[in-house]
Structure formats: C-alpha cells, structure tokens
Design a protein around this nucleic acid. Structure first.
Lengths: 203, 203
DNA sequence: ACAGTAGGATACAGTTCTGTATTGAATACA
DNA sequence: TGTATTCAATACAGAACTGTATCCTACTGT
C-alpha cells in the first residue's frame, strides 16, 4: 500500500473534496459529518482522525480552496496582463476563472460569508483571503493601465471593489433568474461606462 | 382575556418576530424551534399549534416580511418621487429604507437566497418578491425621469438591476469591513458616472 | 519474520432536536 | 351557570448527530 504520509494526506484531501460538494448541496448545518464521510468513501473514524470538529474542517476547507484559487490566479495573471484585449476583459476573465463552478463556488463562499458575519475568527480568515484576491486584481489593473498609458481618476483598489461588488451581486441575480440575467450581462453593460468615466489619458 | 382570534394572531406574530431575530443570530439550521419559542416567550406547543413545521415557518416569515416591506415602500414611494433631489438619492433612499436593520436584513435575505438556490419552491417565492420590489423601484425611476425630462439609454429595469446588484454586493463588503467600505460609498462614487452615461435630455 | 505503530472502522454513550399526544386553563356561548 | 371550544403547556417517543473509546488491519523498521 501507499506510504502512510501520502495516504493520510490523500484521505484528508478526499474529505475536503467531499465536504465541498456536500456543503454546496445541503449547506453547512444541513450537512452532517457522516454525509461528508460517505461522500468521500470513509467513515467518521477517518474524519475525526484528521479533523477535530466540523468547525475546524470548515476553516481548513476554506484555507485549502483559497490557496488553490490564489495559486491558479497567480499563474494566470501574467498571461492576462500581456494579452491583447481591454482592461475589462482581463478583469472579468480573472473573476470568472476564479470560480471553477460558478454555482458551487457562489453557494460555498456566500455561506462562508454569512458564517464570517457571525464569527470574528472566520471573518478574519475571510477578509485576509478577500484582501489577497483583491490585491491580485488591483495589481492586474495597475499593470494594464500602466502598459496602456492609462490613468484612473479613482484609486485602482476602489475600482476593483466596485467590480467585485457588482460581480457578486449580478451573479446572485443570474443564479436566481438565468433567463432574465445572462451571466456577465450587467457587468458588460455598465462597467464600460464607469471605466470610460474614470479613465483619462496619461500626461 | 383577549378574544381568541386576536390572541392567536398575536402569538403567531410574536413567533415570527422571534424567528426573525433568532435566524439572524444563528442562521436557519442553527436555530432550533425551541430557540424560537423561547425567544417569543412560548413553548413548542404554541409553535406547532400555529405552524406545521420549521420549513412552513420560513415561508410564512418571508411572506410576512415581504408584505410589510412592500407596504412600507408603497407608502414611501409618492414622497420620494415628488421631493426635490436627484434620481439617485431617491433610489438609494428607497433601498436603505427597505432594510429596517441592514445587518439583520442582509443575513436573513442572503440566507433565504441560498435556500432558494436549492429549493424551487422557495425560489419562486423569492423571485416573486424580488420582482415586485424591482417593479416598485422601476416605477420610481420612470416617474422621476419623466418628471425631469430625462431619458435613459437603457431600459429602466436594467438600470434598477444594476443598482440592486451593486447595492447588495457593496453591502456585503460594508458588513465585512465597515472601516474600509462605509455604507453607500461605492454606490455614491460610481452610480453617478453610470447615470451620467445613460442619461440624455429628452427631445 | 516480527514487534510496533498509524490510520481508519466499529460500537457506543450522551445530547439535542422534531413532532405527537395529552392535559389544563381560559374564553365564548347557550 | 354550565358546557364546549380554543389555545398553549407538558410529557413523551423516536430519530439524528456528535464525539469518544476501542478494535482491527496493514504498513514500517529492524
């Protein structure tokens, strides 16, 4: 059989994976530890051998997902910055890449956000993650504007916050009414207007 | 004592009120029926005499809150439309009035949205409510633009969807980082730009 | 080959929750 | 005044879930 270290971390990974799926399907409280173990093909013995509690699992899950996400983005960033296309395409492209499965990711991250609004510990973890993500996006914006001799009349971070807020709000509407709000439609309709308003040629 | 009909509906109301608070504090699954009854000052006997189950309560709660909300807005609408001030002030004002307690309302409505993304029945109820709310806002926009000899280059409903998406996304950021994102700051920074871009004097 | 160990399965105790059935009190009405 | 009814409290049965304690199996190193 596999070496024990490898086996252990594989078990951990499968449990995290199962948790991601089950949380997306039933929500955090709606998912029992046993549900998660079943999905991963283990029993609760494996679970409690790897995690102290369900709360601990959530934080670990969020950390793991976050790490993977930021890594993917980091690899993607240079490409986006150097490719032809507008600033907007790059930013929205990054946002879309960020979510492997839009629906699943929306469910998970929204629920974790709710959790964070009630738990300072989770809030700190979430804000750290969002901060890093926002920084990546901000860097992307800065690079592209610099390369295009473009200057923004608002701080890039402020613009990024706008894009994120709009994107998240729009995604919610899209998931609720796919027919009425095609994915990305609100962003592509209105963001160019904002971008146009805050852009000015560099001196 | 009170007449029984009155007493019954008062009990129901107090249970709904308690549910609102407890759901906001602990989330839907985190709140037990008994928690809700305790908060309302009853026991589970009163609960099951008034509601068939927790699921039924949620729908009733959402309905009740929605009704009250729409009623308030309906009363508010003529004032907003006829008062001096910009279109933006009116729309944002309405959105803020809509939420008695921003934080509590955000928690409840977000969680119900998550619920709706997994339950078609809840989705229908939610979309109906959101539709009515959106219609109210759209009517407000139409009235104000007409009164101001203003025309929008996008359908009013589309603009309203934008405002709602941005508002909800921004509210999330505000609740997570009150210091970094003061309430309404994103809206007041960027919506004027959009409004300017889509506005044109009427012929 | 064998003792030691790690990882995961199984069995179990304790808690918590939901939902029902019964009971008691207070009001309406005759 | 007495009877019927309504509403909520209480008692209870059953289910589900968590976390622990123990056991089993398969790999490790000697």
């Amino acid at each position: 059989m596999e070496p024990p270290k490898r086996r252990r971390s594989a078990t951990r990974a499968r449990l995290l994976e199962g948790a991601l799926e089950v949380f997306a399907e039933r929500g955090f409280h709606g998912a029992s530890v046993e549900d998660i173990c079943d999905r991963a093909g283990f029993t609760r013995g494996a679970f409690y051998s790897n995690f102290g509690s369900k709360d601990e699992l959530v934080l670990a899950l969020f950390q793991a997902t976050t790490d993977r996400l930021l890594e993917q983005i980091g690899a993607l960033l240079p490409d986006l910055a150097n490719q032809p296309g507008t600033l907007l395409d790059a930013v929205l492209g990054l946002l879309d890449e960020a979510a492997l499965d839009q629906r699943q990711w929306h469910l998970i991250s929204t629920e974790f956000t709710l959790h964070a609004l009630r738990s300072p510990e989770a809030a700190e973890a979430l804000n750290r993650q969002r901060g890093m993500f926002r920084d990546q996006l901000t860097r992307l914006v800065e690079e592209i504007t610099a390369a295009g001799d473009l200057q923004l009349s608002v701080p890039p971070e402020q613009f990024v916050r706008l894009v994120i807020a709009l994107h998240e709000g729009a995604r919610s509407q899209t998931l609720l009414e796919p027919a009425a709000v095609p994915a990305g439609s609100l962003e592509r309709t209105f963001l160019p207007m904002v971008l146009n308003a805050v852009s000015r040629r560099q001196v």
